[in-house]
Amino acid sequence: MDTRAAQYWKANIRLVATLLVIWFVVSYGFGIILAEPLNAIRIGGVGLGFWFAQQGSIYVFIALIFFYAARMNALDREFDVHED
């Protein structure tokens, strides 16, 4: 049981770490650090860096949370730690 719990926790950490990398890349990466070079790519009338800073990052944040919720609920069942 203990090793099962350890595996569950490890899978959780792996998922959270992956999602936080994406979280960092779309906001701090695309929106701030790389904004200037990305602005060369246009999305409609604005640069891609600007768009990520004021629109895109927010949409990605929402997707990240729902993806996390769905994956964790599946993990809970897989490791049999879900609530009744």
């Binding site: 959270v16 979280w23 906001s27 800073a53 990052s57 927010i58 944040f61 990240l64 949370i65 996390y68």
Partner: peptide, 15 residues
């Protein structure tokens, strides 16, 4: 403000 006041929810939900 746009990123700061929305991105915190990712931290809340995940951590």
């Amino acid at each position: 403000f746009l990123m700061g006041w929305t991105g915190g929810y990712v931290l809340l939900a995940l951590l």
